[in-house]
Simulated scan of single mutants.
Amino acid sequence: MNQTERQSAGSSKLDALALLTQDHDKVKKLFEEFEKLKTIEDTEDEKLDIVQEICAELTIHAKIEEEIFYPAVIEAIGQLDIMDEAAVEHKETKEQIEQLVLMAPEEEFYDAKVTVLKEMVEHHIKEEEGKMFPLIQKASIDLAALGQRLSQRKQELQMDMGMIGASMSTGQGREQTQRGPMP
């Protein structure tokens, strides 16, 4: 079983906050990998692979939050300013991703756009983990059941994007590609 399969298989047993935090940690590591490549010449292919994976991970993460997590949170804690801010941050992140997927690593401002995306995502993570998650922990919400729903939808989206094989949900799948296709 490779790393992606272990993470996907293990994520089905995580509660909602642990699953989302795991996603946050993964994308932060990918941004770190990209940062290291910025100082090395002739790394366009590697940059493209990492940015494609970042964009795919963020696209899936945003979808599961918007479709499942945020509605459950709003039901539990109400439509607070933090929820409005999260929606705006998601919109801006999607716009940045749309621009990046149309670019090549050798284009002017490519690295800068990735850096801006990184800063936007880091701010969003800080807000979620620092402000939203503590409110959720105090609310009466079944985080285990919510985590299961998030995990199931995440696997569906990964399959749709060709990031994991169709038999992945049974634990027998093989990863089709190391870095998934663009969203």
Rank of each mutant, 00 (worst) to 15 (best):
G165I: 02
D81Y: 04
Q148G: 06
D160N: 13
L20E: 01
D49V: 00
Q152L: 01
E175A: 14
L58M: 11
V51G: 04
I60N: 00
Y110F: 15
E107R: 07
E127P: 07
T115S: 14
G173N: 03
V114G: 00
E44D: 13
A16T: 10
S8N: 11
A104M: 12
G130R: 06
Q158A: 11
E122M: 10
V116Y: 05
E92K: 14
Y70K: 13
K94I: 11
T93F: 02
K154P: 02
F69A: 15
T93I: 12
A56W: 01
G165M: 06
P71K: 09
E53W: 03
K63D: 08
E127I: 07
H61I: 08
F133S: 08
D23N: 13
Q172M: 12
E53L: 05
R6M: 05
F109A: 01
S12E: 10
E85R: 09
D81L: 04
S169F: 03
G165V: 06
V73G: 05
E98S: 14
A72L: 08
E85Q: 13
K91G: 01
D23V: 00
T170M: 05
S169G: 03
G180P: 11
H90E: 12
T43H: 02
Q178P: 03
A9L: 11
S11I: 02
E92T: 12
G147I: 02
N2E: 11
I164E: 00
K94W: 00
Q99M: 12
K91M: 08
Q176H: 10
Q22E: 14
L102R: 11
H123G: 02
Y110M: 04
I82W: 02
M182V: 15
K154L: 01
E53K: 03
K13M: 06
H24I: 10
R6I: 06
L100F: 08
Q137L: 13
F69Q: 08
P183Y: 09
E129T: 07
D49I: 06
T93H: 01
V101D: 03
K63T: 06
Q148C: 01
L58N: 01
T177I: 05
A18L: 10
E46W: 00
K63R: 13
S140R: 10
V101W: 00
I54Y: 07
E98D: 15
K118P: 09
T21G: 01
G10A: 10
A86N: 03
L30H: 09
A104D: 08
Q176Y: 08
E67N: 14
I125G: 06
H24F: 08
L150D: 05
A16P: 07
G171A: 04
A56E: 11
R149L: 14
L14P: 07
H124E: 05
E53N: 01
I50N: 09
K38R: 12
T4R: 13
V73M: 07
N2Y: 02
E156K: 11
L37M: 08
M103N: 02
S169C: 07
A86I: 02
E89R: 09
V121E: 10
E67I: 10
Q3H: 12
A16Q: 09
E92V: 09
D15G: 00
M132F: 07
C55K: 05
K36I: 06
E57G: 03
K94Q: 07
G10E: 10
L100W: 05
K94F: 09
G180R: 14
M182H: 07
E106W: 05
D84L: 08
A144E: 15
E89I: 06
V121W: 08
F69M: 15
S12V: 15
K138W: 04
L17V: 13
K13Q: 15
